[in-house]
Amino acid sequence: MTTRPIVSEPAENLCEVTFDSKLEKRIADTLKQYPTPRAALLPVLWLCQDRYGWISPGVMRAVAQRLGENPAHVEGVVTFYTMFRTRPPASYVLQVCRTLSCAMCGGKELAEHLTTKLGVGFGERTPDGLFELHAVECLGACGSAPVVQINDDYYESMTPEKIDAVLETLTRKA
């Protein structure tokens, strides 16, 4: 399995946002599936995060305008959900589970290992902008604990050795 890196738009490109035709089409298609524009807010934000890598205030404003909402409402929603990124992310976002099942199967050690290995704390990123580490709660894959999610992919039944190998592949690819 090869996880694709996140390609994120730099902040200076996202001050004033106009959706390109491809994104606009996806938004228009999405809107058709919901009874009101407000109801489509979450899926539209996903499309934007997918396109830009993260959601800047400029993106929020563009979304608000597109859906006829106030930008404050959009920002309220974006900041409520932890999975929306409000800063440009690293190429690989590591989310290591620290809930019970994983904790009992070595998740704690795995998390500690990752902090020393990458030399960063939770919520921080490596200086080269390659990795970003987060501690999260149950990822819903307890059966194969401990679990680390990297971008959109799950890496299950992890050990320090296995995750080292994964990180190496990803670094090499970059």
């Binding site: 404003r61 404050a72 959009v74 900041t79």
Partner: peptide, 17 residues
């Protein structure tokens, strides 16, 4: 103009950006 931001224990009142 006003909204809640963040969630849970950390919720606060703010304006857009």
């Amino acid at each position: 103009q006003l909204t809640y931001k963040a969630r849970g224990n950390g919720v606060y009142v703010d304006t857009y950006d």
